[in-house]
Amino acid sequence: MESLGAIIKQWPTGKNALQEADRLLGELLGDPLVERLRAEHPELDRETIRLNLNRVYQYVKEQRSCSDCPGLDRCPNDFEGHYTLLSCETVGETVQLNDRKVMCNKLRTRQNEEQIRSRVRSFYVDETALSQGYSADEILTSDLKRSKAVMQVFQYIDKTKESGLQRRGLYLAGSFGTGKTFLMCYMLYELAKAGYTGAIVYMPDFVEDLKMLMHEPGKLKETVDLMKETDLLIFDDIGAENLNPWARDHVMGAILNYRMNRKPTFYTSNYDLDMLERHFSFTNREGDELHKGQRLMDRVRPYVDTVLVTGHNKRGV
């Protein structure tokens, strides 16, 4: 349907214009939407509809568009993602017809999804892992060999939703391509829907970028503070990074020291905890530093439950 203004421009002038207006009024009065509106508001008479012809026409036009919605990006309504809703009220002896714009379900869903995504930050991790929809059934059944690990993650999500943010996190250990990162992204997405903020950090790239951030103290502080304060922090593929003493002691140490006993930290790794400790105890610059590796692990080991993720390598499939 065209806009009423466009239709009026095509009308003849004078008496014929009045006839066209009466014809349009008759069409609207016979429309099922208007008939239903009048059944809900018996006080809505013909004259009131005639005086509010533009409102009634807009209402019918937009309701029809919504009933055959072409999608939010191609919304034909004047105000994208909204439709006109009419209501009646009687003031003295006068019947007033009021209109208002109402957000449609598709726009409401989109805004909810954008709000969820805004709660999650990604550092060097593929954004599609966080933006796509997830099916719990598919995650559970796609690889039955990892079903025990999946159930542990599901239980953690449920516990957080029921009783609030936990102090302990999870340490997902397993071989390449078994879906550890995917499970953590699923957890972030589900808990973001519950209102929690989160960040996932791909450790090999993060440690490399720290070398540049050393010369940008303001940006470094902003990054570290975000990782300290976010509700859920995931260090992805920890143990694969080329660690140096400064990154280990002054960045990782500071973040984990702040978060322990406050907020949960999560990890994915191809190493178990003992292997990770050996990794932390050796740097290319200073060689073997067992006590410093142990000191960092004191901020990891007591604050996680280990989840062994087994299954098939899904990369390249």
Rank of each mutant, 00 (worst) to 15 (best):
309 V>W: 00
98 N>A: 03
231 D>P: 11
14 G>F: 01
104 C>L: 11
269 S>P: 05
20 E>F: 15
9 K>C: 05
120 V>Q: 07
98 N>M: 10
192 A>R: 01
156 Y>S: 10
291 H>A: 13
246 W>E: 07
232 L>I: 13
220 L>Q: 07
19 Q>H: 15
210 L>N: 02
206 F>M: 12
85 L>S: 13
84 T>S: 15
310 T>M: 08
199 A>Q: 02
270 N>K: 08
183 L>A: 02
46 R>Y: 09
216 E>H: 09
63 Q>D: 08
267 Y>M: 03
298 D>W: 06
304 V>D: 02
317 V>D: 01
190 E>C: 04
109 T>F: 12
183 L>E: 03
60 V>S: 02
306 T>S: 05
26 G>S: 14
36 R>M: 06
187 M>N: 02
180 K>E: 07
8 I>K: 11
250 H>A: 09
58 Q>M: 10
146 R>E: 05
253 G>F: 06
233 L>W: 02
94 T>H: 07
115 Q>T: 09
35 E>Y: 00
203 M>I: 03
177 G>F: 06
20 E>Q: 15
105 N>Q: 15
56 V>I: 13
233 L>E: 05
64 R>T: 10
104 C>D: 12
240 A>R: 13
9 K>E: 12
183 L>T: 06
33 L>T: 03
5 G>E: 14
144 L>S: 07
141 T>V: 11
167 R>L: 06
25 L>P: 09
296 L>D: 01
308 L>I: 11
44 L>A: 07
228 K>I: 04
185 C>L: 03
